[in-house]
Amino acid sequence: MRTVASDRLLLRPWRDEDADFLLDLESRWEVVRFLGPNPTTMTTRAEALASIARRRAVDDPIHGIWAITTAADGRVVGNLLLKPVPLSAGESAGGTADVEIGWHLHPDAWGHGYATEAAAAVMDDAFIRGLRRVIAVTNPANTASQAVCRRLGMTHVGRTTRYYGTPKELFEKLAET
């Protein structure tokens, strides 16, 4: 999987040596509470290693799941994904799979603009590689991620139950033509 760089960040593939960080990150309820339809905290290093293996398995010229690191010192600060989003039961794909961008960062890294910078770099890279549309599917209570979406220039499309089987706020960004 490729790396993606921005001014302050390097997004790179997850490594086994990141397991302690990932366990710390995803053992925190305040970090995972808005992830997926049934959020749960991670409890063991073995879970972290298995999760890293799944993240590395996303090997695609556009999609990926990256460790967000600071360019200055290589410190891991969070996770960013760009991948097809699962539809709710009974929903039709309508021809093409929607591609979701998402992020979660360690609380020590909140408030530094890292989520916006990392997401912008990955979206720019994906658009250059031919992706035409990116969506963000946020929990209605996740106002922090919705603010990131707006800073990214994403358009709020409205509330939907098309993804994850629960009501979500949907944002989208189209590639410039």
Rank of each mutant, 00 (worst) to 15 (best):
T70Y: 00
M123D: 07
R8Y: 01
T43E: 14
I65L: 06
T40I: 12
D18R: 01
D124E: 15
G78K: 12
V137A: 08
W110A: 04
D125Q: 15
L82Q: 02
G153E: 05
R56T: 01
V99G: 03
R132A: 14
G94A: 07
D7T: 15
A109D: 04
D24L: 08
R45C: 07
R8D: 05
G36I: 05
L82V: 02
Y163N: 14
N38E: 14
F127T: 02
L11I: 00
I68N: 01
S27L: 03
S88F: 02
G94L: 11
V148W: 02
P107T: 06
I65R: 02
V85H: 04
L25I: 07
R54M: 10
L10S: 13
G94W: 12
V32I: 11
A126F: 04
R12W: 02
D60H: 14
T96I: 10
Q146E: 08
S51D: 13
H156K: 14
G113Q: 11
A93Q: 11
L82E: 02
T3R: 13
D124L: 10
D124Q: 15
A109E: 04
R151I: 10
R28G: 03
L170T: 10
H112W: 04
I52M: 09
R15K: 13
E172L: 06
L152R: 07
S6I: 10
G94Y: 12
M42I: 01
P86G: 13
G130C: 12
H106S: 14
S6Y: 09
T41Q: 10
R151E: 06
Q146K: 06
G113K: 13
T3D: 13
R132Y: 08
R151K: 15
A118C: 13
D24Q: 11
D124Y: 05
T155M: 05
A118Y: 12
A126C: 05
D20F: 10
T44K: 07
A48N: 05
A72C: 03
R159G: 04
A147D: 10
S27C: 03
F171A: 02
K83A: 15
T43P: 00
L80C: 09
Y114F: 15
A126S: 07
E26Q: 14
S92P: 11
H106M: 14
F34K: 09
H106F: 08
W14K: 09
T3N: 10
P84K: 05
L49W: 00
G74D: 15
T40C: 12
F127A: 04
R8K: 05
I135P: 07
I128P: 06
E47W: 01
